[in-house]
């Protein structure tokens, strides 16, 4: 099958467009999250989304309307993770674990006491990169713009708190505010992007491009750019390889990210060996 033909399908065009935008924004956010030891926040917030979607369905709010419940709940949960790390002196992974477990149990409880639903909850929860509609491409583009503009505005503040929180505060950075901005941007991205491309893709795109870039980057700026490049390229490559191999697209994108990560580790080893030799 040739390239032109593959590109003639509307769903492929939309997958490439929305997928790349989401991948780039997840990869960039991921660099900050990995450095702040909040790598698993994507999975955690996805579980909270499951819980909040159960609330929404119990209130008879479907698809788009369910966001009215999910968004505020997940934003609050993200702040909850932050508060747990600050006030209860928990590590990020423990805080995420707590919030995620509570989220999923609320979902399971509601699914049981609510007397069931009109639809299967799980099947509505996760999108698929191949089933993105025109409206959702616009949502993805809007999300991309919002996240990128905020990251641009707060870039140095985010860099400062990731580097060292004490030093950041003495430089006049409002560390609590900036941390809140970071996790809330993540929450927004998880809630919206999960419905578009599914949670497996989101959580892996928050981690893998960032850790690969950390292997190779020679500056913070380069790290961000490398992560964004890997995220974007992995989606494009994943869609085409999925076409050639007839394997599921999301899983293929994750595997390509893993491949990139292995290559980064290899290159880093080579550089280290050469420097020693």
């Amino acid at each position: 099958m040739n390239l032109i033909e593959i590109l003639s399908y509307g769903f492929i065009q939309r997958a490439l467009l929305a997928g790349t935008l989401i991948a780039v924004l997840c990869s960039v956010l991921g660099v900050f999250l990995v450095l702040r030891r909040l790598s698993l926040i994507g999975d955690g917030l996805a579980h909270v989304t499951f819980g909040s979607t159960a609330i929404a369905l119990a209130l008879q709010l479907y698809s788009a309307a369910s966001l009215l419940v999910s968004l505020p709940v997940v934003l609050l949960a993200s702040l909850g993770i932050l508060k747990l790390t600050e006030k209860a002196r928990l590590n990020g992974d423990a805080a995420i674990g707590i919030v995620s477990a509570v989220g999923i149990s609320i979902g399971i409880m509601l699914a049981s006491v609510g007397g069931g639903y009109n639809v299967d909850l799980l099947s509505y929860l996760f999108g698929n990169i191949l089933s993105i509609s025109y409206e959702e491409v616009i949502i993805a583009a809007g999300l991309f713009c919002v996240v990128m503009v905020l990251l641009w505005l707060f870039f140095h503040d985010l860099l400062a708190i990731s580097f060292n929180e004490e030093l950041a505060r003495v430089s006049g950075v409002r560390t609590n505010l900036i941390s809140a901005v970071l996790v809330m941007l993540t929450a927004l991205s998880v809630v919206l992007a999960m419905k578009l491309v599914g949670i497996m893709l989101i959580s892996s795109l928050l981690i893998l491009p960032a850790v690969s870039a950390l292997q190779l980057a020679r500056s913070f700026r380069a790290c961000i750019v490398l992560a964004a490049l890997q995220g974007g390229c992995s989606v494009v490559a994943g869609i085409f390889v999925s076409f050639l191999t007839n394997l599921p697209t999301s899983a293929m994108i994750v595997m390509i990210n893993l491949l990139f990560f292995c290559c980064s580790c290899g290159v880093r080893r080579l550089i280290t060996i050469r420097n020693i030799g």
Partner: peptide
Amino acid sequence: PATVAETVALGLL
């Protein structure tokens, strides 16, 4: 992954 220059620049914030 911050360079020396990037680190020092943070002092200007």
